[in-house]
Computed example of a mutant assay.
Amino acid sequence: MKTIILATGNPNKAIELKEMLDNAYAVKTMGEVGIDLDIIEDGETFEDNALIKVRAIAPYVGDQDIIMADDSGLSVDALKGAPGVYSARYAGEHVTYADNNAKLLKEMAAVPDGERGAAFICCVALILPGGEEWTGRGTVRGTIAHGLRGAEGFGYDPLFIEETTGQSYAEMGDAAKNKISHRGRAIALAKAKLDSLA
């Protein structure tokens, strides 16, 4: 079984990723393999940031292992793509999800229903055995709600209404969300690439 080293310290991402990859790979966070780095994500795109992460840990990872990272965020049409790569720190540094949601609701307060379109975007980057770099992008369209809806999920999930279901991500629950989510779509592309190497 091939090993994927995730350029993240978040153990929940490793658990989620194992499930999305049908448990076909051993998945470990960089912390679990003893890599302790503070990675500065200062790219202009989601692809940039995902590549920054995998490249940062590459010198510490064995040649036969796969390195993976993702970067994701919310792009709102009426805000010219904001918060974009700044999604996690939209309301400032060291803020809560509630702070970011409150800022988004404030920015969108005067935007009418027909102009509240948005997309959740996730980019996955891989460095494969031998050094090849690969990126893939998953996108889900929807709209921004006028208030918080649902109690599941995290981040902007209570404000993002997915276009085919009419539900917010936070109303779906994790299993349903993962089947259609931007992250699920990006990981599916990565899995297809990885499976093609076997």
Rank of each mutant, 00 (worst) to 15 (best):
S72L: 03
S72G: 08
S72F: 00
L74C: 04
V76H: 05
V76G: 04
D77C: 11
D77M: 11
D77V: 15
G81P: 10
A82Q: 12
G84V: 04
G84M: 13
V85Q: 14
A88L: 05
A88D: 05
R89H: 12
Y90C: 11
A91S: 15
E93T: 07
V95T: 15
V95H: 01
V95R: 14
T96G: 08
Y97K: 10
Y97P: 15
D99W: 05
D99I: 06
N101Y: 06
N101Q: 10
A102F: 02
K103T: 00
K103F: 01
L104R: 01
L104G: 01
L105G: 00
K106V: 02
E107F: 06
M108P: 01
M108N: 09
A109L: 09
V111N: 09
V111T: 14
D113P: 13
D113S: 13
D113M: 13
D113N: 14
G114P: 14
E115C: 15
R116Q: 13
A118Y: 15
C122W: 02
C122G: 09
C122H: 07
V124H: 09
A125K: 12
I127Q: 10
P129C: 07
G130H: 10
G130W: 02
G130A: 12
G131E: 12
E132R: 15
E132H: 14
E133K: 10
W134L: 01
T135M: 03
T135W: 00
T135S: 10
G136P: 02
G136R: 00
R137M: 05
R137N: 07
R137H: 00
R137T: 13
G138S: 08
T139F: 04
T139Q: 11
V140T: 03
V140A: 04
R141G: 06
R141Q: 07
R141W: 08
G142S: 02
G142C: 04
T143I: 04
T143K: 12
I144R: 06
A145L: 02
A145W: 00
H146L: 01
G147H: 09
R149I: 01
E152F: 11
G153T: 01
F154W: 10
F154N: 12
F154V: 02
F154L: 07
G155L: 04
Y156P: 15
Y156K: 10
D157M: 05
P158A: 00
P158V: 02
L159W: 03
F160Q: 02
I161S: 04
I161L: 02
T164H: 12
T164E: 11
G166S: 05
Q167T: 08
S168C: 09
Y169W: 14
A170K: 04
A170Y: 11
A175N: 01
A175Y: 04
A176R: 11
A176Y: 01
K177R: 07
N178Q: 07
N178L: 06
I180E: 07
S181M: 12
H182I: 08
H182R: 07
H182L: 04
H182T: 05
R183A: 09
G184Y: 03
R185S: 08
I187Q: 10
A188E: 11
A188Y: 06
L189M: 14
A190P: 03
K191E: 05
K191L: 09
A192I: 03
A192E: 13
